[in-house]
Protein backbone atom coordinates (compact mmCIF):
# COMPACT_ATOMS: atom_id res chain seq x y z
CA UNK A 1 0.00 0.00 0.00
CA UNK A 2 1.28 3.43 -0.85
CA UNK A 3 0.57 6.11 1.67
CA UNK A 4 0.85 9.70 0.66
CA UNK A 5 2.30 12.01 3.22
CA UNK A 6 2.11 15.72 2.79
CA UNK A 7 5.61 17.02 2.16
CA UNK A 8 6.95 20.26 0.79
CA UNK A 9 9.07 18.72 -1.93
CA UNK A 10 9.73 15.30 -3.44
CA UNK A 11 13.18 14.47 -4.77
CA UNK A 12 13.35 11.63 -7.28
CA UNK A 13 16.60 9.68 -6.89
CA UNK A 14 15.43 6.36 -8.28
CA UNK A 15 18.17 4.56 -10.19
CA UNK A 16 20.91 6.83 -8.89
CA UNK A 17 24.03 5.38 -7.31
CA UNK A 18 26.00 6.65 -4.31
CA UNK A 19 26.89 9.47 -3.72
CA UNK A 20 24.20 11.10 -5.88
CA UNK A 21 21.25 10.73 -3.49
CA UNK A 22 23.26 12.51 -0.79
CA UNK A 23 24.51 15.23 -3.14
CA UNK A 24 21.01 15.89 -4.47
CA UNK A 25 19.53 15.86 -0.97
CA UNK A 26 21.97 18.53 0.13
CA UNK A 27 20.99 20.76 -2.79
CA UNK A 28 17.27 20.21 -2.28
CA UNK A 29 17.44 20.94 1.45
CA UNK A 30 19.29 24.18 0.74
CA UNK A 31 16.33 25.33 -1.34
CA UNK A 32 13.73 24.60 1.34
CA UNK A 33 12.65 26.86 4.17
CA UNK A 34 13.33 25.91 7.75
CA UNK A 35 10.75 23.46 9.04
CA UNK A 36 9.79 22.16 5.60
CA UNK A 37 9.88 18.46 4.86
CA UNK A 38 11.68 16.79 1.95
CA UNK A 39 10.83 13.32 0.72
CA UNK A 40 13.65 11.49 -1.07
CA UNK A 41 12.81 8.49 -3.22
CA UNK A 42 15.85 6.29 -3.76
CA UNK A 43 16.63 2.79 -4.93
CA UNK A 44 20.23 2.81 -3.67
CA UNK A 45 20.24 0.46 -0.67
CA UNK A 46 23.15 2.41 0.77
CA UNK A 47 20.89 5.44 1.06
CA UNK A 48 19.24 3.94 4.14
CA UNK A 49 22.36 4.29 6.26
CA UNK A 50 23.81 7.23 4.33
CA UNK A 51 20.92 9.67 4.59
CA UNK A 52 20.54 9.03 8.32
CA UNK A 53 24.23 9.76 8.87
CA UNK A 54 24.00 12.73 6.57
CA UNK A 55 21.15 14.22 8.59
CA UNK A 56 23.00 13.61 11.82
CA UNK A 57 26.14 15.33 10.53
CA UNK A 58 24.35 18.30 9.02
CA UNK A 59 21.91 18.80 11.89
CA UNK A 60 18.72 18.20 9.92
CA UNK A 61 15.98 16.00 11.30
CA UNK A 62 15.72 12.51 9.86
CA UNK A 63 12.06 11.64 10.36
CA UNK A 64 12.13 8.08 9.02
CA UNK A 65 11.97 5.90 5.94
CA UNK A 66 9.55 3.50 4.38
CA UNK A 67 10.39 0.76 1.94
CA UNK A 68 7.91 0.17 -0.86
CA UNK A 69 8.65 -2.39 -3.57
CA UNK A 70 12.34 -1.64 -3.73
CA UNK A 71 11.99 2.11 -3.32
CA UNK A 72 13.17 3.75 -0.14
CA UNK A 73 11.17 6.81 0.83
CA UNK A 74 13.13 8.99 3.23
CA UNK A 75 11.66 11.95 5.08
CA UNK A 76 13.92 14.75 6.28
CA UNK A 77 12.88 18.02 7.86
CA UNK A 78 15.06 21.06 7.44
CA UNK A 79 16.06 21.98 10.95
CA UNK A 80 16.43 25.38 12.46
CA UNK A 81 19.66 25.79 14.41
CA UNK A 82 17.80 27.77 17.08
CA UNK A 83 15.14 25.13 17.55
CA UNK A 84 17.25 22.99 19.85
CA UNK A 85 17.85 25.89 22.20
CA UNK A 86 15.85 26.07 25.39
CA UNK A 87 13.58 28.92 24.42
CA UNK A 88 10.31 28.15 26.12
CA UNK A 89 8.26 31.21 26.98
CA UNK A 90 4.71 29.96 27.54
CA UNK A 91 4.25 29.72 31.29
CA UNK A 92 2.03 26.64 31.55
CA UNK A 93 3.89 23.46 30.81
CA UNK A 94 3.44 19.75 31.34
CA UNK A 95 6.14 17.09 31.48
CA UNK A 96 6.13 13.89 29.48
CA UNK A 97 5.85 11.94 32.75
CA UNK A 98 2.65 13.78 33.64
CA UNK A 99 1.20 12.91 30.24
CA UNK A 100 2.29 9.29 30.49
CA UNK A 101 0.87 8.90 34.01
CA UNK A 102 -2.44 10.49 33.11
CA UNK A 103 -2.81 8.30 30.05
CA UNK A 104 -1.82 5.21 32.05
CA UNK A 105 -4.52 5.97 34.63
CA UNK A 106 -7.08 6.06 31.82
CA UNK A 107 -7.56 9.81 31.74
CA UNK A 108 -8.65 11.19 28.39
CA UNK A 109 -6.37 13.98 27.18
CA UNK A 110 -6.62 16.28 24.19
CA UNK A 111 -3.15 16.13 22.77
CA UNK A 112 -2.50 18.53 19.93
CA UNK A 113 0.50 17.50 17.84
CA UNK A 114 1.75 20.49 15.85
CA UNK A 115 4.58 18.80 13.95
CA UNK A 116 4.60 18.25 10.17
CA UNK A 117 2.33 15.50 8.79
CA UNK A 118 5.32 13.24 8.04
CA UNK A 119 6.62 13.54 11.60
CA UNK A 120 3.16 12.77 12.94
CA UNK A 121 2.83 9.75 10.65
CA UNK A 122 6.11 8.25 11.87
CA UNK A 123 5.10 8.21 15.52
CA UNK A 124 2.83 10.16 17.83
CA UNK A 125 1.20 9.77 21.23
CA UNK A 126 -1.85 7.53 20.70
CA UNK A 127 -4.96 9.62 20.11
CA UNK A 128 -3.08 12.85 19.42
CA UNK A 129 -4.72 15.12 16.87
CA UNK A 130 -2.67 16.74 14.13
CA UNK A 131 -2.60 20.39 13.17
CA UNK A 132 0.82 21.40 11.82
CA UNK A 133 2.02 24.70 13.30
CA UNK A 134 1.99 26.29 9.86
CA UNK A 135 -1.72 25.53 9.40
CA UNK A 136 -2.79 26.81 12.80
CA UNK A 137 -4.12 30.18 11.68
CA UNK A 138 -6.39 28.49 9.16
CA UNK A 139 -7.51 25.64 11.39
CA UNK A 140 -7.68 26.74 15.04
CA UNK A 141 -11.46 27.02 14.66
CA UNK A 142 -11.59 23.22 14.54
CA UNK A 143 -10.69 23.24 18.23
CA UNK A 144 -13.01 23.93 21.14
CA UNK A 145 -11.71 26.95 23.09
CA UNK A 146 -13.12 25.68 26.35
CA UNK A 147 -11.34 22.37 26.31
CA UNK A 148 -7.94 21.69 27.78
CA UNK A 149 -5.17 21.05 25.25
CA UNK A 150 -1.73 19.56 25.73
CA UNK A 151 0.32 20.90 22.83
CA UNK A 152 3.33 18.92 21.70
CA UNK A 153 5.98 19.06 18.97
CA UNK A 154 9.48 17.63 18.71
CA UNK A 155 11.44 19.78 21.13
CA UNK A 156 8.94 22.14 22.75
CA UNK A 157 9.66 25.11 20.52
CA UNK A 158 6.93 24.97 17.88
CA UNK A 159 4.43 23.96 20.56
CA UNK A 160 5.47 26.96 22.64
CA UNK A 161 4.70 29.25 19.72
CA UNK A 162 1.36 27.50 19.13
CA UNK A 163 0.38 27.86 22.81
CA UNK A 164 1.04 31.58 22.67
CA UNK A 165 -0.94 31.95 19.45
CA UNK A 166 -3.89 29.95 20.80
CA UNK A 167 -3.85 31.92 24.07
CA UNK A 168 -4.18 35.10 21.99
CA UNK A 169 -7.20 33.52 20.29
CA UNK A 170 -8.92 33.02 23.61
CA UNK A 171 -7.94 29.50 24.56
CA UNK A 172 -7.43 29.42 28.31
CA UNK A 173 -6.55 25.84 29.22
CA UNK A 174 -3.31 25.16 27.39
CA UNK A 175 -0.17 23.35 28.37
CA UNK A 176 3.05 23.15 26.42
CA UNK A 177 4.41 19.61 26.71
CA UNK A 178 8.15 19.67 27.20
CA UNK A 179 10.62 18.63 26.01
CA UNK A 180 8.53 16.98 23.27
CA UNK A 181 8.48 13.85 21.13
CA UNK A 182 12.28 13.54 21.06
CA UNK A 183 12.15 12.27 24.64
CA UNK A 184 8.84 10.42 24.53
CA UNK A 185 9.33 6.81 25.64
CA UNK A 186 5.68 5.76 25.94
CA UNK A 187 3.43 4.07 23.38
CA UNK A 188 3.30 5.45 19.88
CA UNK A 189 0.78 5.19 17.11
CA UNK A 190 1.93 5.37 13.47
CA UNK A 191 0.63 5.31 9.92
CA UNK A 192 3.68 3.81 8.24
Amino acid sequence: MTTTLKVDRILECEGLACPLPVVKTKKAIEELNTGEVLEIKATDKGSVADLQSWAKRTGHQYIGFKEETGIFRHFIRKADPTETKEDVKFQYTASLDEINNKLASGEKLNILDVREPAEYAFGRIPGAISIPAGELEARYNELDRDKEFHVICRTGSRSDMVCRTLADKGFSRLKNVIPGMTEWAGDVEKDV
Binding site: P19, V22, V23, T25, K26, W54, R57, T58
Partner: peptide, 11 residues
Protein backbone atom coordinates in the same frame (compact mmCIF):
# COMPACT_ATOMS: atom_id res chain seq x y z
CA UNK B 1 35.59 11.59 -6.02
CA UNK B 2 32.85 9.56 -4.30
CA UNK B 3 34.32 10.30 -0.91
CA UNK B 4 35.02 13.92 -1.83
CA UNK B 5 31.50 14.68 -3.11
CA UNK B 6 29.82 12.84 -0.23
CA UNK B 7 31.91 14.81 2.24
CA UNK B 8 31.26 18.13 0.50
CA UNK B 9 27.52 17.37 0.58
CA UNK B 10 27.83 16.79 4.32
CA UNK B 11 29.12 20.28 5.10
Amino acid sequence: FNIATAAAATD
